[in-house]
Simulated scan of single mutants.
Amino acid sequence: KASIYVRAFDRRAVIKLKGAPVDGVVREVLESAVKMGRMALESIGVDHAEIDRTEDIYRRNDKERLRVQSEAGDIRAARGIMITQDQRAGLSEEQAG
């Protein structure tokens, strides 16, 4: 059996692949955004362990959001679990306190 791996531009493309016989998908927009975010945080001296933790939180949230959107077949689903500026500020305050 041949394996099929797909490079998808964004979450819309992933949702369209629902039910397709693919073995793996890489989202270009997600991966480039994470890489650039890491580069920016490294450039201002953020600790690598903190960068890894932040990436993990972001990826878990994104994975759950994409799961809900895929199940609903609607890109607008799961807006309530997007990380907002207020949530980022709350995380920073908790870490500082």
Rank of each mutant, 00 (worst) to 15 (best):
K1F: 09
S3W: 07
Y5T: 11
R7W: 10
R7Y: 12
A8K: 04
R11W: 02
R11D: 14
R12E: 12
A13H: 14
K16L: 12
L17S: 09
K18T: 12
A20M: 15
A20K: 15
A20N: 08
V22L: 07
V22H: 14
V25H: 03
V25M: 03
R27M: 15
E31Q: 10
E31K: 04
M36Q: 12
L41S: 08
V46H: 02
A49E: 11
I51V: 08
D52K: 12
R53I: 01
R53W: 07
T54M: 09
D56M: 09
D56Q: 08
I57L: 14
I57T: 09
Y58M: 12
R60K: 13
N61F: 05
K63D: 13
L66K: 00
V68W: 04
V68C: 03
V68Q: 11
Q69D: 05
E71V: 04
E71W: 01
A72P: 02
G73F: 04
G73D: 04
D74M: 08
D74C: 08
A77R: 02
A77Y: 01
A77P: 04
A78Q: 02
R79G: 15
I83H: 00
T84W: 00
T84G: 07
D86Y: 09
Q87G: 02
A89H: 11
G90I: 04
L91R: 10
L91D: 05
E93T: 12
A96V: 05
